[in-house]
Nucleic acid binder design. Structure first.
Length: 437
RNA sequence: GCCCUGGUAGUGUAGUGGUCUAUCAUCUAGGCCUGUCGAGCCUGGGACUCGGGUUCGAAUCCCGACCAGGGCGCCA
């Protein structure tokens, strides 16, 4: 007899023998009868144990199982007006597959909430809650939506190394690893590799992979390990071409999630809106003017508060959630040595950020593909060219114009689902203080 | 790294110098109950982060460490 999930059973199967298995979520004892709520991947069902039918010993063994024990039950499905699902299972046989210790470090259905830290320490139990698992089903849909769009538009999925010879932007935020007696690093971004691939004929590539940052950031939107979607495309004319791919990708991905994740979004109480393309694009300098008119006291860079205000601004004035901040001044992108500056105005780049509900989700733009200019910009940053030789070499033997972006997948999920902390969107988050579980 | 706030049963909390053999809920153990579904009722159980200090007396005040929550910088 095949094991059935709870959603494969129905009142119309009245009288059939069935086999089910799952976690004992709750036992409601009423003396000679007890109701066991059994939870599996798909939902819950009620097992009704009756003492005089089972015999005192087996009855007691079943109904005294600690909560969250795993049990397999064979029994007769019976239509029932009293049971929530319209049916219940009268056990004839059962097998305890795994008894749970008491007390639980974290309740699954307790009537008190647990703090995030407690939940993360006991993530495997935390994930037994439907609404917590739903976050990761949505995340899976986000990745599927991304792949679906990109593969359908001529992009090739690639994998670049995560143990690397140099960082993308200097050495301050790199995790060092000992590599057979030599010094290597965990990749903070696939930047150098995805650019290198533009010199190969793959032309349009993407990667969904972890990135590592040793920044001592301590916020609800930073992690030391996060999932980065990186996209790079060759033979572009300007950063506009990159933005177009990005906005279409984001809109298509959200549409995919809305279409396929209806149940999860409802469970999470989230209304996700599919954005219209093209997204609004406002140059950096105009953003500063808007912010000043809103009473913002910032400098030349848009800070966290500025981002939030801009998010409110486009929501109030246009009812939109996405905003491209374009034409970042060179001054702010100097560290991004590979950013192309405008030939007609070297003080500006074509670089952009994409903000989602007032938070940065992506940055990208056209890269500098001309060897001499790239070298000059690297020297400006005091980078040792020898250390970047494997990267630079790719620019000397035919490198087409190209550009791309990196998008924080965890952050995308966080903003989409309105999660207050990015850690909620990561199964086992890594931050400055947390390396376990 | 900086600023603010906090750390009390398994979980979540009340308690700001003696009235604390520390509150409440949840949980847990046992009991009653054949229709529960946030089951109900009865009886038990379980905690002051660690190390110094002040004081006749510290969960409470001070110092340090560790940890957590939020904010900033930076970023995805």
């Amino acid at each position: 007899m095949h094991r059935k999930y709870s959603n494969e059973l129905c009142p119309e199967m009245d009288g059939q023998e069935v086999r089910v298995a799952g976690w004992v979520e709750d036992v409601r004892k009423l003396g000679s009868i007890a109701f066991i709520i059994l939870r599996d991947r798909e939902g819950r069902l009620q097992v009704t144990a009756i003492k005089k039918e089972m015999g005192k010993e087996r009855f007691t063994e079943l109904i005294t199982l600690p909560r969250e024990s795993v049990v397999e039950i064979k029994g007769k499905l019976q239509k029932s007006a009293e049971a929530r699902m319209g049916f219940e299972i009268l056990p004839t046989e059962f097998k305890v597959l795994s008894k749970a210790e008491v007390p639980l470090p974290l309740g699954v259905v307790d009537k008190v909430n647990a703090e995030l830290d407690t939940r993360l320490d006991n993530r495997f139990i935390d994930l037994r809650k439907d609404e917590v698992r739903a976050i990761f089903k949505v995340k899976s849909l986000v990745c599927a939506g991304i792949r679906n769009y990109l593969l359908g538009n001529g992009f090739v999925e690639v994998h670049t190394p995560k143990i690397v010879f140099a960082g993308a932007e200097g050495g301050a935020t790199l995790f060092e690893v000992e590599y057979f007696g030599r010094k290597a690093f965990l990749a903070q971004s696939p930047q150098l590799y995805k650019q290198t691939l533009m010199a190969t004929g793959l032309d349009r590539i993407f990667e969904i992979a972890p990135a590592f940052r040793a920044e001592p950031s301590d916020t609800v939107r930073h992690l030391s390990e996060f999932i980065s979607l990186d996209v790079e495309l060759a033979y572009i004319n300007t950063s506009e071409d990159v933005m177009q791919v990005l906005e279409n990708l984001v809109a298509a991905t959200i549409e995919y999630v809305v279409k396929n994740g209806e149940k999860e979004l409802k469970l999470l109480n989230c209304e996700v809106r599919v954005p219209k393309v093209p997204f609004r694009k406002i140059p950096h300098r105009e953003c500063l003017e808007i912010l000043k008119s809103m009473g913002w006291h910032g400098g030349v860079d848009i800070d966290t508060e500025g981002e939030k205000l801009l998010g409110e601004y486009i929501m109030q004035n246009y009812g939109e959630e996405f905003l491209f901040i374009t034409e970042f001044p060179t001054e702010l992108k100097r560290g991004t040595f590979y950013a192309m500056r405008k030939d007609e105005n070297p003080e500006l780049t074509g670089y952009f950020d994409l903000d989602y509900r007032g938070q940065e989700l992506t940055s990208g733009g056209q890269r500098e593909h001309r060897y001499e200019k790239l070298k000059t910009q690297m020297l400006e940053n005091n980078l040792k060219l020898e250390a970047f030789e494997p990267y630079l070499k790719a620019f000397r033997y035919g490198m087409p114009p190209h550009g791309g972006f990196g998008l924080g997948v965890d952050r995308f999920v966080q903003k989409m689902l309105n999660l207050t902390n990015i850690r909620e969107a990561v199964l086992f988050p890594r931050d400055r203080l947390r390396v376990t579980p």
